[in-house]
């Protein structure tokens, strides 16, 4: 049986890779995928903890995150398309994330 820590570290790695992607990529779609990946790493972490504690709260949480992800993708892509109509570009830098 694989210890919970292994799953947690895998989750942390994926989360960090996703965060790196958000901070370093400039394509809005890829950034969006990275955010989805971050949510997935949380799902993995939660399921591992659910097994660890032997209760269902973690799994319920994951189920809700999935619902959120589905809603997010619908809204997010709608916003993306609306934005592309205006700017004809999906480079995130066009919307200046790091601008103060």
């Amino acid at each position: 049986m694989v210890p919970t820590n292994y799953y947690l570290i895998l989750g942390a790695m994926i989360f960090a890779i996703g965060a790196i992607g958000v901070l370093s990529r400039r394509n809005a779609l890829i950034i969006f995928m990275c955010v989805e990946m971050m949510l997935n790493s949380v799902n993995l972490t939660l399921i591992a903890f659910a097994r660890q504690w032997n209760n269902l709260n973690g799994q319920i949480f994951v189920f809700m995150i999935m619902a959120v992800a589905a809603a997010e993708v619908a809204v997010g892509l709608a916003i993306l398309i609306a934005h592309v109509h205006h700017s004809k570009s999906i480079n995130i830098d066009d919307i200046n994330v790091m601008k103060w």
């Binding site: 942390a12 790695m13 989360f15 960090a16 890779i17 965060a19 790196i20 958000v22 901070l23 370093s24």
Partner: peptide, 11 residues
């Protein structure tokens, strides 16, 4: 680069 550094630090 800052993003990568930040991410590695976090992991």
């Amino acid at each position: 680069f800052a993003g990568v550094a930040l991410g590695l630090l976090m992991v």
